[in-house]
Amino acid sequence: MVSAIKESRGDKVFLVLVYLFLSAALLVVLYPLLYMISASISTPKFVNSGEMWLWPKGLTLDGYRLVFDNAKIWTGYGNTILYTAIGTLINLAITLPAAYALSRSDFYGRNLFMILILITMFFNGGLVPLYLVVKDLGLINSMWALILPVSVTVWNLIVARTFFQSTIPRELQEAAHIDGCTNLRLFVRIVLPLSAPIIAVMALFYGVMHWNSYFTALIYLNDESKYPLQMVLRQILVLQQMGSETNEALSSDMAAAAASKAEVASLVKYAVIIVSTLPVIAVYPFLQRYFVQGVMIGSVKG
């Protein structure tokens, strides 16, 4: 850029204000995150009294011990990993080929298909009619109810289509056709290997969606043993019900350590927040580039 011309005093003041604004934004977002990490390894007494407000006080790992002793949380964790893995695979298997087909300008009927898909973004049947369809398919209380109704999201489909449109040169496809290459071979052998970034973006977007969703489980699952992690978290964090296991663990080996039920509750809360969010937050800084890329591709067109 142009830095040859000296900045005026007004510009300097403006820039200082910009930095102050950004620093304020940083603090406001960072503080609750740091606080939760600190609270999860501090003695509940200090946390609840407000003595612990930034750095951990009275270091303890009891919260994590209680979380790891809780069978419900483990089951939820296992379920979520299973649902996320299978769900994301299905998402990719359906979204990528469809997006590729829609990206081809010689694909007859693609405008019609695109309109049919876009309509669903702005008008839908609503909660009960969808519930009835899922019920008629016999999916209630099965993991497929959490996976199949969200097989494709329109946004991700558009992002993937835009990527294919802008990165796969038409000449490549024409050359492949002249050489007698079928569309299937073209897609599997040439297009997919060129599309590693979009596959990563899609897997991440869909993966986070499955990991964080609770509402589908709330409406479609009755059986607690099938609950994903977020539903277990809802019981602990929102409905404030501890698993019976936690209380047992408390009465057996930790009764002396924890003064009251409330203290245990608060200990478990922070630890469980960290444990459940960690996988996503831990991988996120390394994959940030891909996430951002995904949003940017989507914003170029559409």
Binding site: A93, I94, T95, P97, A98, Y100, A101, L102, F113, L116, I117, T120, F123, N124, G125, G126, V128, P129, L130, L132, V133, L137, L148, P149, S151, V152, L157, N183, F187
Partner: peptide, 20 residues
């Protein structure tokens, strides 16, 4: 390629519209 995707939109978006 696009058939599964269209099937999905038919079953989980257009069938519920019929249910309206």
């Amino acid at each position: 390629f696009i058939a599964p995707c269209l099937l999905y939109f038919f079953v989980f978006h257009y069938l519920p519209m019929y249910g309206i």
